[in-house]
Design a protein around this nucleic acid. Sequence first.
DNA 1: CCCATTGCTACATTTAATGTAGCATAGCCG
DNA 2: CGGCTATGCTACATTAAATGTAGCAATGGG
Lengths: 114, 114
Amino acid sequence: MAIPTPGRPVRGSRSGAPIMALFDLLGRRWGMGILWRLSEGPCTFRELQTRCETISPTILNRRLKELREALLIERCADGYKLTDLGAELYGLLVPLGSYARTWAACLRAETDEA
Amino acid sequence: MAIPTPGRPVRGSRSGAPIMALFDLLGRRWGMGILWRLSEGPCTFRELQTRCETISPTILNRRLKELREALLIERCADGYKLTDLGAELYGLLVPLGSYARTWAACLRAETDEA
DNA sequence: CCCATTGCTACATTTAATGTAGCATAGCCG
DNA sequence: CGGCTATGCTACATTAAATGTAGCAATGGG
């Protein structure tokens, strides 16, 4: 699957709105998860596979290719790492971490009362 | 597909880390796009379908069910709208909009020079 | 009653993800 | 050198998810 290109039709925008292209890319399975795990530090393919806990090498490899093409990650001596552009994106995802805990608490509360 | 439940195994975390559960949910096709479009204001199923430009009713309906179950959106007189929890999440996605434009510019630059 | 709009569902097809096995290369150690 | 380990993958068969089109049942006018 080719990477979504801003300016060309993407899922959610026939005109290729950048945000929709980004959502299309990050919305692929494991997309954000890989960025998140890689933010813990550069690592090898196999180490990344371990960090992701349940990813298959097939899909890890495909996402890595896409994310490299999208300039978010790159190869290095230790295997793979975030580019500056990727690190910047990661920075925007960080707040989702604490939000997720709030969200989880709400879900639990809802489930309990039901 | 059941919604990923924090605390139970999800993609990326056997122990169910909230952030991975959230990534699993938002990482489903159209997940973030629907939130984004709904943030423009409450609307009907069909209007939302139009805003999304290219979504099929099948998958729109499925995502709506999931997002409702996840307490991010709810039904209202006008059709659907974000819950407070969903609006809060949307707030965290907003910065991705301007980031996406930067990212698009970098991609274009890269493509041009190659 | 007729027509338009609503929120969907059915179903057939295409595409993506999974899981397991294993190969080819590179580096060490004796 | 031979044998071991780790690396980055790829092949392939299976399952699951997304797509696209058609259309139905319900509601609310006029």
